[in-house]
Each structure stands twice: as C-alpha cells, then as structure tokens.
C-alpha cells in the first residue's frame, strides 16, 4: 500500500514538475527569452564560484604556460648559442680562406714579374723567444732552398734563410738584431747597411736602423730604400722600406730609421728566391707594390736634418 502511495506521489511530483517546466519554458518563449527569477538567482549564487574556478585555472594555466615558454626559450637560447658558435667558427674559417686567397692572389700577381725563380712557402712557426726574430717555413732543402736564400713578400724584403732542413727552413727576419742587408737610397744612390733594431725589450720595435750613412749624405724622410746587391745575397732593387726618420748625431754618421715595407706582423706566405742572378737589378716597373700606408706611427723627423 505504501509503495503504491509512494509511486503515486512520485508520479504526481513528476507531473507537477514537468508541467512547471513547460510553463516556465513556454513563458520564456512567449517573452522571447530572458532569465527567470529562479534562473537569475541560481546564476547569481553559482557564478562567483565559476568565476573563482576560471580565475584560478587562468592563473595556473598562465603560470604553466609561462614556465613552458621559459623552458622553450631556454632550450632555444642554448640551441642558438651553439649555432652561433658554429657559425662564428665557420665565418672565421671563411674569412681566413678569403684572406689566404687574397694573399695568394697578391703573390700570384707579383711572382711572374720577378726576374728570378721563387718558391712559395708558408710560415709554419714564428719566433718562440723574445731575443731573436725568426720564422720557420714549410719548405726545405728538398724543395731547393739553400742557405742564405733571400726571402721576400709581396711588399718587400723579409729576411734570409739561416738554417735549412730537409722539409723546413728557418728565416732570420730583417728585424733581427743580428741581421744585415746592403741597401741603397734609390733617389740619391747612397749605399748603406740596414739591420734590425729588435732585441730584448727593445723600444724601437719593428724599425730598421740604417747604418754608415755620412752626415753630409742626401737622405730625407720618405726616401725609398732598396737592396743594393753588394752583399751578394739579395738581388738589387728589391724594396726594403722608406726612411722614417733622419737625425744628425755628433759623430760621422747619421742616425736613420727605416720603416720596412714588409708586413712583419702578419707573415704567412712568403717567396724564397731559389736562384740569385748576379748583376740583375730590378726596375721600378717590376718591383713588388709598396705598402699602401706607413705602418708604424707618424714620422719622427727632425726638420733640421732634412
């Protein structure tokens, strides 16, 4: 009996609720929609909770998104660093190749104009001690290099071979304190000897000293200095440098400094003279091109001694 009553009650309840729903829906349809008081109340009560959930989730998602982005940026940063390092190395390699190509092109331009046989050699080592100025070349006796063979660059005389091995040769640079080279002032034809000034802690650095020039000799700053050939080692007329400063000392000779035309600070490919033709003097036309700028500072010229 109770179950039947329950069932009846529930059916009545169902009928009532369905009817209520239909009425509520129908009224909304009649009015063209809009929220009822019940709807407004439910929405007002529960929407703050929704807003809280939304805000909380938004914050969590934003934090997570920021974290993921940060991780991504970090990884990307690492990748870019590696890539940049690789590209920098590649760029450096390409620039080296370009410079090497330029140097070789210079040599290739100059080499045919030289009236003697030269051999291209690469500098494989530079001086390891501060007291001497030497470089080692990758060519030796097997390549036809002889002792005392002149070594030149595209811009001027570099030095001479002082030791020869089967596959390597040591070159004493003009800058070395022990070097010596017979030269001539091209304009006034005055002969002299130049030697290096470099020594241990020598303040004159990469200058050459021109010795044995009488005080009355006609030498001015900027005069071109070439090899005289009198030392019987270097061919005549090779560019050595330009007079950088001339000073009159109290003695018999002038104190002259010569700026070498060879770029000693960046020696890489050099030419070794294999056969030295006696009595051959180079003309102005066949001389290797002179350096574009005086490489070492301003001229230390004393006007009185010009």
């Amino acid at each position: 009996m109770a179950r039947v009553l329950d069932t009846r009650r529930s059916r009545f309840l169902l009928g009532g609720l369905v009817l209520a729903h239909l009425v509520v829906i129908s009224r909304q349809v009649d009015r063209g929609g809009g929220t009822s008081l019940l709807g407004q109340t439910v929405f007002a009560v529960l929407s703050p909770l929704q807003r809280m959930v939304g805000a909380g989730l938004g914050a969590v998602l934003a934090t997570w998104s920021g974290y993921v982005d940060l991780r991504h940026v970090y990884r990307e940063n690492q990748d870019l660093r590696v890539r940049m390092a690789a590209l920098e190395m590649e760029l450096q390699r390409q620039q080296d190749r370009l410079r090497e190509a330029d140097r070789l092109r210079e040599i290739a331009d100059v080499k045919p104009s030289l009236p003697f046989d030269t051999l291209l050699a690469q500098v494989i080592a530079t001086d390891g001690v501060p007291w001497y100025r030497t470089v080692t070349l990758n060519r030796g006796r097997a390549d036809g290099i002889a002792l005392n063979a002149p070594v030149i660059s595209t811009t001027g005389v570099v030095g001479r071979v002082v030791a020869v091995g089967p596959r390597a040769a040591k070159v004493q640079l003009l800058l070395d304190h022990e070097s010596g080279l017979g030269v001539r002032i091209e304009r006034s034809r005055i002969t002299a000897v130049v030697s290096g000034q470099a020594g241990f802690a020598d303040h004159v650095g990469n200058m050459l000293a021109m010795k044995f020039v009488p005080v009355l000799a006609d030498v001015t700053v900027g005069d071109v200095v070439v090899t005289s050939g009198l030392d019987r080692m270097f061919p005549k007329g090779l560019m050595v440098g330009r007079v950088q400063s001339v000073k009159a000392t109290g003695g018999l000779f002038k104190d002259i400094l010569v700026a070498p035309s060879a770029h000693f600070e960046r020696l890489e490919e050099l030419m070794v003279v294999r056969a030295r033709p006696d009595g051959l003097e180079l003309t102005e036309e066949v001389r290797p091109p002179e350096p574009k700028a005086v490489p070492r500072g301003a001229a230390k010229t004393s006007p009185a001694t010009r």
């Binding site: 729903h21 509520v24 829906i25 909304q28 349809v29 929609g33 809009g34 929220t35 009822s36 709807g39 439910v42 929405f43 529960l46 929407s47 929704q50």
Partner: peptide
C-alpha cells in the same frame, strides 16, 4: 544549473 550557466536563450 546547466541551463543557467551553459544554456542558451530559453532556460529549462
């Protein structure tokens, strides 16, 4: 609740 929060123009 679903109607109010996720429903459309007509509630119920």
């Amino acid at each position: 609740v679903q109607d109010v929060h996720f429903g459309g123009r007509i509630l119920g």
